[in-house]
Design a protein around this nucleic acid. Structure first.
Lengths: 339, 339
DNA sequence: TTGAAAGCGCTAACAG
DNA sequence: CTGTTAGCGCTTTCAA
């Protein structure tokens, strides 16, 4: 208890105190080999006394498995992503892994960070960052590190994926707005390309065209709230026959809603119907009451973890793509408000 | 390139290929010892050829420093916390550490998870979880693992801290509401105790009492949006002479705002002035336009990392408490709207 | 059941 | 400048 160098106790210290060999300590504590009840007890007692804890790092050196897993995520300060990461991390933790969080914002040298993950010998990684560098994914494959891509399109890389059905998403949006009585459509397609967001905008437009209904593409810069505000400006500048707009993320939708309502004094849904996508918590807030399409963040995270684990256990299994469930959530920004 | 066992190359493999000794590889790659230009080149070339990367885990075994740092956070799906964790993680990454994310939700055996962190030999940890188990902090101290507590009150444990000034917060809230013309106050004090939230509610009430102005305590269950809604119900049930309410978090404020406005048809700020705390992104959204007190999440995160690093470098330095900057943000839920 | 010994991958102190 | 050597803390054969 002296305040000095307090070196952490090692299995050797425990062994000495319990009067056995280090290997006995290992066996007793891991429960892997046969040990007599008596030594087991002595070891456990000694370990407790010393406050000994196994050094996983040393252990991993031996059995080639660190138990560390990387979560590579961008836009962590965004409600949807935060929830997704939280659930993935929790799930990983429950399964005995230890998640390392890599935040990938903007152009910060992502590949350097992923490199670092590789240096830590991660057992796998879950990538839910925008535009992960494709080269890195190859590198992971080369090193036999399982990677699961969440809603990301990385060239034609072979990997396990958890994805939205883009076509179904566009179709569902179209069906919802149509069912709510929309006739002249607009869709928000951010200029900054993102696989799923841009994709569903395109799919939605395709549905409109197939039905020979007019659709206008509005292109805000990115996919956040402020971009929704920008979209409102663009929308207001259009001829106002547009009566229904599919905002490809809830953040866009909420910005657009506020912009149209507060800045331009439009009545929603009377003058214009708005549909979002994601069903983030804020969509359900009373003041917003946004009709949207729920993308199940929890399910996506859990699926990702499952896929990763499956590949860790069997590196040769065929690549799999799991689909994230989606469902309509009717609220107050459309004229139709119930199933 | 064959699809077989692909064991990861070790420094030994590189050494063999470059025709030098393993230690030369280490020296060349770490840039720590003197190496001739020629060998350095050969080593680097060989390393690249093999796709070799240093195994940090093995290295850490030698120099007793894993470079791993724990971030223990609860309520990660909350805007303020998500932002804080994002910035802390990014900062850690920039400084060469690798953050392990522990999500501490509810009663999930937190101490087991922190134990795991210790097993991974983390260089330090940043705790921004609600009610971290005090025992664990002691354990960290015993093992000489630096811990910095962010806005947490853990008994009288000695540790580095990053904290809000609770008294100043209550005072600022009071001053703002008073300056905006409030005369009969209410304050939201969640029943689920949280050091800072409960604390500033108390401090605010004290200011009212000191000024001999009436103040009503409203006690919603927790501190989220839905609890704000609950608070609105409680508030509406009061006699309606209350003209200004300090909601101790923005989430509470936003819920209360929506509840009063949507459910009870009150005009804000005419009928009631509302003040939040935190300045989360949503507070600034046009439809909310919440007057609040900004708690600088970025600054808090950066301070935490700094404190942790300082202690890693010098374990004997005196414990320090850094204060998170706060500032008024006037928006539309108070009658006064500018500085 | 238990002890001995080898080895995981890397680094640093020490010779040469 | 470079090779040798001795660990870091743990696990796992292999004998005894």
């Amino acid at each position: 208890m002296t305040e000095k160098k307090q070196k952490k106790p090692t299995s050797f210290d425990v062994a000495r105190l319990a009067n056995v060999h280090r290997s006995a300590v290992s066996r007793a504590l891991s429960g892997k080999g046969r040990v007599s009840e008596e030594t087991r007890e002595r070891v456990i007692k000694a370990a407790q006394e010393l406050g000994y804890r196994v050094n996983y790092l040393a252990r991993s050196l031996h059995d080639q498995n660190s138990g560390l897993v990387g979560i590579v995520a961008s836009r962590l300060d965004t409600p949807y992503r935060a929830l997704q990461v939280k659930i993935a991390a929790r799930d990983l933790l429950n399964k005995g892994y230890c998640p390392i969080l890599i935040v990938a914002e903007g152009d910060v040298a992502l590949s350097g960070l992923i490199d670092r993950l590789l240096n830590y010998n991660v057992a796998g990684m879950i990538v839910t960052s925008d535009s992960p560098p494709a080269g890195i994914i190859d590198e992971c494959k080369r090193l036999a590190v399982p990677v699961v891509l969440v809603n990301r399109d990385v060239g034609d890389v072979q990997a396990d994926r958890v994805q939205l059905d883009i076509e179904a998403s566009g179709q569902m949006a179209f069906d919802m707005l149509r069912a709510a009585g929309g006739t002249r459509f607009a869709v928000l397609a951010p200029r900054e390309q993102t696989y799923t967001v841009t994709g569903r905008a395109r799919a939605f437009a395709a549905c409109c065209q197939a039905a020979e209904l007019p659709v206008t593409m509005i292109t805000p810069h990115r996919q956040n709230y402020v971009d929704g505000l920008e979209a409102a400006d663009l929308l207001a500048a259009q001829d106002d026959s547009i009566d229904a707009v599919f905002c490809t993320t809830d953040l866009l939708a909420l910005g657009c809603l506020d912009g149209m309502r507060v800045t331009y004094g439009r009545q929603i849904p009377q003058d214009l119907q708005i549909l979002g996508y994601d069903d983030i918590e804020q969509a359900g807030w009373l003041g917003n009451n946004l009709t949207t399409i729920k993308q199940d963040a929890g399910a996506a995270a859990v699926l990702a973890v499952e896929l990763m684990q499956a590949r860790i256990e069997d590196a040769t299994r065929p690549f799999e793509t799991a689909t994230i469930p989606i469902s309509p959530v009717w609220r107050g920004t459309t004229r139709k408000t119930a199933g």
